[in-house]
Design a protein around this nucleic acid. Structure first.
Lengths: 335, 335
DNA sequence: CAACTTTTGGCAACCGCTTGCCGCAACTGT
DNA sequence: ACAGTTGCGGCAAGCGGTTGCCAAAAGTTG
C-alpha cells in the first residue's frame, strides 16, 4: 500500500459536509471571532470527523508566511552549538514555528547560498557564528529578515555573549596566578569572534603588565590542537588562550603526548564551556555563557522583526553575561 | 527600510518581459527539453536580468512535493547524533533537498505530534532512535513516508549499526580479559536499542560462561551515570556495559568521585564512540559504527520511496558493521 | 504538393487556503 | 413602524506556479 494514496480532505470537503461556504470554514478555523459560536462548533466537529488538517503550504502561499525559521551554524559537530540550537528551537516552537537547522561547514559561500535558496520558504534567518563579511551580511539583511548570534554587524539585530568582559576575566584570572606572558591561539580568519577576542586581550594584558602574542590561525577543531600546542610551547608563554574549547582540548591532548604538564608547565584556557570541557584531562578552564539563552533571544529578535509591535522599537545588540568556569587546566605560573 | 518591501518578480513578469506565455516560461525553467533552445535562452536571460527565482511554495502546492525532508533525533544534545545529522544533511543536499532537524527530547508524543504537524509540508521523515511503540510507528508509516535509524520495525525501511554483533565483540573482549560477571546498565524503557542489546548480551555471556545481570533503566545522559555507577558497584560485577557513552562517562565520573579505579576495580564499556569518549579519563572502550553512513542511507531509502525505480525493490533493514574501539576503561578482571 | 507527423507555444484549469467586499437578517433606538 | 447598525456568511479574486489539451507551425514523406 503506497502511502498517501487516500487524498486528504480539504476545506471544500468540510464546507460541503457542514453545509457552509469554504470561507466560513476558513474563518471558523483561523479567525474564530469572525463566526458565530454555534456554526464554529459545528464546523470544528465536522472537520474533526473528517480528519481534516490545514495544508500549511496552501496557507503560506497567499500570505507569504510559512511559520518556519532557519538557523545556520558554522559547524554542527561543535557541541558549542547545542545550546544555541536547543534554545532557538524551544523559542520557535513556543511561537508555533518550525525551525530548520543547517550546517554551513565554515563556508561563507554555503551560508549565502543557503539563504538565497530558502529565502522564499522561510520567515527569517538566524546565523550563528557567521563567516561572511560584514558587507555580505548587510546586503543579505537588506533582502531578508536576519538576526545573528555571536556576531555584531551594524544595524543587524544580534545576541552575543560578552566575550570582551569574558576575556578580561580570563586575563585577570591568569594574572592572579602569576602569569606574565600569554599567547592567544587564533581561530579562522573569517571568524569575527577571533578578531574581537584578540582585540580584547591586548589592553587588559597591558593593564596587568603581561606580554601578549597571537599565533594562528588554526582550524577551530580538535585536530587543530596539535599545531596550536606546539606553537604555544615555542612561544615561551606560560599561559595559552585557545580560540575555543575544541582547539583547547586538542592542545591538551598534544601536551599529554609530548609530556608537557598542564597546568604545571603551561596553563590552558578555552571559550564556550562545551560538553567535554569538564571531563577532559585536566578539566578545562573556560569561558561559559548562556548560549541557550542567546539562541532564544535571536529567535525572539527575529520574530519581533516579523511582527513589529507599536512603540516597541526592535532591540539590537543584546549582550549576555559570561563567566569563567575555573577548572584544573590553569594554575600557578612556573617561576 | 523594511525588508521584502519590493515584491519579487514572478513568472508573469518574466513572461510579459520576454513576450511569451507563462507556461512557456515555466517549461523553459523546469522542463528544458520541452521548449526551443532559442526561446529558452531568451527566457533564461530575461529571468536573470529581472532577478527572478521560483517560489518553492507555489511550486510545491500543486505537486505536493516540497523537496524538504525532516529528521528527528531523540536528543539533540547527544553528540552521538552528530554523525547521523551530518550524513543525512549531506545526502539530502546532494539530492537537492532541504533537511529539517528536530529534537524530540526523548518524548514519543513529541515525535508523533511533530510528524502530524509537518506531514503536509515535507516529503518524508527520518526518525533516529525513535521512542515510539512499534504500533505507533507502523501506523504513522502507513500515512507518511518514513524511514528509521537505529530501529527496526517490520516493513519500515531502516538503517542500523550492527549492535548485536557489536555486543558480541564487547562480551568477547571482556571474556578475554578474564571477566566472569557483567552487568548491563539499561537505557530508557522505550528505547528499542536498550532491549536489543540486553537480548544480545545474554546468549553470548552464556556461551562464555559469564553471569549477566541487567539494571536500570537509567536516563541516557551524563547525569544518569551516578546512579548507574552505584548500582553497578552494588551488583558485584567486574565489568559494566552502559547503554551509551553519555551514561558511561557519567559512570566514570562517579567512580572517580568514589575512589573506584577504572579499569583496575571495574571495567566500563559504552556504545556509540561519541565526541569525548577518547579523552575522558580513562578513555572509554566503546562500540563504534559508521553513523554518518547510517544517516546517509536512511535519507537514501527515503528518497527511493519517494521516487520508486522500476525493478528496484526498496531495500529495507540495512545493517552497517560495527567495531570495538578499545581504550583504557577496560582491563584485566580483578582476581 | 498534399497528407501526415512532430515541435513548439498558448489557454485555462487546477493546487488549497485567505480575505476584501457585499448583502441579508436580526437587532437597536426613537 | 422605520431607518440605521451590527453580526454573520457567501462570492470570488487572488497567491505563483504546473500541466493536460489543443492548435499553429514546421518538418517529413511518397
Amino acid at each position: 500500500m503506497p502511502p498517501e494514496n487516500a487524498k486528504r480532505p480539504t476545506i471544500y470537503d468540510v464546507a460541503r459536509e457542514a453545509g457552509v461556504a469554504t470561507s466560513t470554514v476558513s474563518r471558523a478555523l483561523s479567525n474564530p471571532d469572525r463566526v458565530n459560536a454555534r456554526t464554529r462548533e459545528h464546523i470544528v466537529a465536522v472537520a474533526e470527523r473528517l480528519g481534516y488538517s490545514t495544508n500549511p503550504l496552501a496557507r503560506a502561499l497567499p500570505s507569504g508566511r510559512t511559520q518556519t525559521l532557519a538557523l545556520f551554524v558554522s559547524d554542527i559537530t561543535n557541541p558549542h552549538f547545542f545550546g544555541i540550537i536547543r534554545g532557538a528551537e524551544q523559542q520557535a516552537r513556543a511561537a508555533g514555528c518550525t525551525l530548520i537547522v543547517g550546517d554551513t561547514e565554515e563556508s561563507p559561500d554555503l551560508e549565502s547560498r543557503n539563504i538565497e535558496r530558502l529565502g522564499r520558504s522561510v520567515d527569517g534567518f538566524v546565523i550563528a557564528a557567521s563567516r561572511m563579511t560584514d558587507k555580505a551580511i548587510k546586503q543579505l539583511a537588506a533582502q531578508h529578515r536576519l538576526t545573528l548570534v555571536s556576531r555584531q554587524v551594524g544595524g543587524v539585530p544580534n545576541a552575543i555573549v560578552d566575550h570582551v568582559d569574558g576575556t578580561r576575566q580570563i586575563i585577570e584570572h591568569l594574572a592572579s596566578l602569576g602569569h606574565r606572558s600569554v599567547v592567544y591561539l587564533a581561530g579562522p580568519r573569517r571568524s569575527w569572534l577571533a578578531g574581537q577576542r584578540w582585540r580584547a586581550v591586548q589592553p587588559v594584558a597591558r593593564r596587568f603588565d603581561m606580554t601578549a602574542a597571537r599565533l594562528g590561525p588554526f582550524p577551530p577543531a580538535v585536530h587543530g590542537g596539535a599545531a596550536a600546542a606546539d606553537a604555544a610551547l615555542g612561544s615561551g608563554a606560560t599561559a595559552a588562550i585557545a580560540h575555543n574549547d575544541l582547539l583547547a582540548i586538542g592542545m591538551l591532548r598534544r601536551f599529554a603526548e609530548r609530556g608537557v604538564r598542564v597546568p604545571e608547565d603551561i596553563s590552558v584556557v578555552g571559550y564556550d564551556d562545551i560538553f567535554g570541557a569538564d571531563f577532559c584531562s585536566p578539566p578545562l578552564t573556560t569561558l561559559a555563557g548562556p548560549f541557550e539563552e542567546a539562541g532564544r533571544v535571536a529567535v525572539d529578535l527575529l520574530l519581533s522583526m516579523r511582527d513589529p509591535v507599536r512603540n516597541h522599537p526592535p532591540r539590537r545588540d543584546v549582550v549576555l553575561p559570561s563567566h569563567l568556569a575555573t577548572r584544573s587546566s590553569t594554575g600557578q605560573a612556573p617561576r
